[in-house]
Deep mutational scan, measured.
Amino acid sequence: MGFKLLSKLLVYLTASIMAIASPLAFSVDSSGEYPTVSEIPVGEVRLYQIADGVWSHIATQSFDGAVYPSNGLIVRDGDELLLIDTAWGAKNTAALLAEIEKQIGLPVTRAVSTHFHDDRVGGVDVLRAAGVATYASPSTRRLAEVEGNEIPTHSLEGLSSSGDAVRFGPVELFYPGAAHSTDNLIVYVPSASVLYGGCAIYELSRTSAGNVADADLAEWPTSIERIQQHYPEAQFVIPGHGLPGGLDLLKHTTNVVKAHTNRSVVE
């Protein structure tokens, strides 16, 4: 069995187990497998329904001669939608809004960016022009300005110390501490036991640490421990890039980060 097929099978099995364990909360999309990078042309966006009122959005972007996937989250909030992270750029984010209108038909009224990198804030200006209120932590807003990236308009308070959590509509926002970046936030959907790890969490097929220019490698494993301790009931975990899975993604990420750190020390 090929690795790609095995990865998709694991996603399907995880979703099936969740649907059985929580039949009222989960209505997993039966329309197909989780979209992969090879299936999404740059400039297009796919939506994948995880649970009743919960979707991931998947886009792709060219970077350094390669094409990478990027995940975000959409959560229903009454007759409105909360968006977590842009679709990595203005063109993708405009396509995301169009796809949401086509498939869901509810307005996106608020959006949260989970850290300051372009795959999370690139497209904020498109959201703002569409009347979406954009939010991020003060740290993310400051770092985005320093980096020359787009800056969300509103500040999220109460997320300055490791372990801080605040309720934001249908989700809980959690600051686990520094990891992929010093400002990275985690998003949890309690009604569906869905954990969105953003770039602080890796997919299972990833074996290298990737972009760690703004990471705190020493603190990252401790931050992941905080996530595990705060959300032990999480059933569906979405990484910032690639295929979702279960809580095993947290341990896998820790292993990859520690291996990278150990290699760096040896070198």
Rank of each mutant, 00 (worst) to 15 (best):
Y202W: 06
A98F: 05
R142H: 11
T153W: 06
P239R: 01
K91R: 13
E267R: 11
L247D: 05
A98E: 13
E39G: 09
I50K: 03
I104T: 08
G148Q: 15
A87L: 03
V75T: 07
G148L: 11
A165I: 06
A144L: 09
D164W: 10
G123N: 04
R167C: 05
Q229R: 11
E150T: 08
G158M: 12
V126L: 12
Q229A: 15
L47V: 10
A192E: 07
Y12K: 13
R128K: 10
A19G: 08
I201Y: 00
Q229C: 04
A51R: 08
P152Y: 01
F236E: 11
H241L: 01
N149D: 14
D183Q: 00
E99F: 15
M1I: 04
L83K: 02
G122M: 05
H260G: 09
S22N: 10
S193W: 08
G105E: 15
H252C: 01
A259N: 15
Y12D: 13
I84D: 00
V37G: 07
G2L: 12
S160E: 11
E157S: 11
S162D: 12
T261V: 14
Q61V: 13
Q49Y: 06
A111V: 09
F3G: 05
V146M: 08
K8T: 09
P221E: 09
D52Q: 06
S191N: 05
G210N: 15
E147H: 09
V11I: 05
N211S: 10
V112N: 03
T261C: 12
D183Y: 03
E172W: 10
Y68I: 15
G43L: 05
L195D: 00
T182F: 10
L127E: 01
V187N: 03
H241G: 01
K4S: 05
V146S: 12
T261E: 07
R141D: 02
G240R: 03
S113W: 04
S155D: 12
G163H: 09
L173W: 00
S208V: 11
N92M: 04
A136L: 03
W88R: 00
L81G: 03
G78I: 06
S155W: 09
L156C: 02
A133V: 11
I20P: 11
S181K: 01
A209N: 05
A200D: 02
Y48C: 11
S137G: 12
V257R: 01
L13Y: 05
D248M: 07
E44L: 14
A144F: 02
I100A: 14
S7C: 06
N92T: 15
T36W: 07
R46G: 12
D29T: 14
L173D: 00
A178R: 08
V75L: 11
A209C: 09
T253Y: 01
T14S: 11
G32Y: 14
E147P: 06
I186L: 07
T109G: 13
N92S: 13
T114W: 02
G53L: 11
P176H: 02
G177D: 03
A259F: 13
G246W: 04
A165N: 15
R76M: 07
T253M: 03
D29E: 11
G148P: 05
V189E: 07
A129P: 03
L143G: 12
L143P: 03
A130H: 14
V257A: 08
S161C: 11
E80P: 04
Y68A: 14
V266W: 14
A15I: 15
M1K: 04
Q61P: 02
H260I: 14
V54D: 02
G32L: 15
R76G: 10
D29M: 13
N184D: 03
P23W: 13
W220E: 01
Y175L: 05
P232Y: 05
G240W: 03
A95H: 15
A165K: 13
S16Q: 05
I58V: 09
S205A: 08
K251H: 12
T109I: 15
E233H: 11
S137I: 07
G65W: 10
E225D: 15
S191C: 02
A98R: 08
S193R: 11
P35H: 15
F116H: 15
L247I: 05
G53P: 06
A25D: 06
Y12H: 06
L243D: 08
S113C: 09
P138F: 09
K91F: 13
